[in-house]
Amino acid sequence: MGYVVETIDLRAYYMLRRGSVKAVDGVNLKIGEREIVGVVGESGCGKSTLSRVLALDFIPPLKLVGGKIIIDGEDVTSIPISEARKRIAGTKISLIPQSAMNAIIPVTRVKDYIADVVKEKTGLPREKIVDMARKRFEEIGLPPIALDMYPFELSGGMRQRVLIALATLLNPSLLIADEPTSALDVSTQKMVLTTLYNVFKMGLTKSIMFITHDIATVRQIATRIVVMYAGKIVEDGPTEDLIHNPFHPYSKALMFSILTPEPEVRKRVEQTGGIAGEPPSLINPPPGCRFHPRCPYAMDVCRREEPPMIEVEKGRFVACWLYAKK
């Protein structure tokens, strides 16, 4: 069984005048079929950039600096980007970016917008596309009347779900959702999350990559969690294992910062929680392990050399000198 997406030493930087922002700096990620991967981290860790890079959306100053991206077995970094994009956008990889509240052109009706998008890729006649859309809306529980409306007439939650419907209309292999629930009310969040999960269960998309800083939300549906820090992946493992027993000091700190009204959280909030300091500059990241300035376990080697990513247990990967023998 192949991977839907595989990246090998992926590097993408923002080329600014004052320096290059190393937002994605040596990322090795594999997403298999029928996985929901939650990519979590603080703001500025590079997770949103990663989503853009996987969608091959390189808008200056973002530049692909090195590494490979293999989508459905095909190395898309070996062909010209524009051609690769045409092939994968919407059909293999579908991205729902952050601030999707204003994603649809305000002066078009939802059905016209969907028809514009799909016609581009498939050449199907408009009525057929609207029919497809109508059926899909019903499948995922959206009122078909939304098709005739303008985006501003829909609530935030509805807009988000319309985007999910649109992004999965052509049954992509990977649906990437960047903070799909952040701007919404708690009850609407649950509804959108449910829609996302349903879309996965119904097979409308093979796999999902869910990017967020809100771990409690993503763990509801994620099969696997990937923790990013300063442009790198520091830990990668199955959801339950990682949450109950995080390995990397940063993952531990992340888990301990979460405030939900649960007895387990109550117990440990009284003692610890929160990390001192702020994430590092991505223009001049610290040498060695990027987390070492904030890490309570930092050792000498951490300041000098970057730890390799190793498989500590079956399916659990960590990049930390506490686990790599030196």
């Binding site: 808008i59 956008a89 991205l95 970016p97 204003n102 052109i105 078009t108 514009d116």
Partner: peptide, 25 residues
């Protein structure tokens, strides 16, 4: 610079169609 123009590009709408949206807006 608006979100919807960014999304139109991301979702793969052709530059020509994007231009026509731009005109309308």
């Amino acid at each position: 610079s608006m979100d919807y123009m960014d999304y139109a590009r991301v979702i793969g709408i052709s530059p020509r169609k994007t231009q026509s949206y731009l005109f309308r807006l």
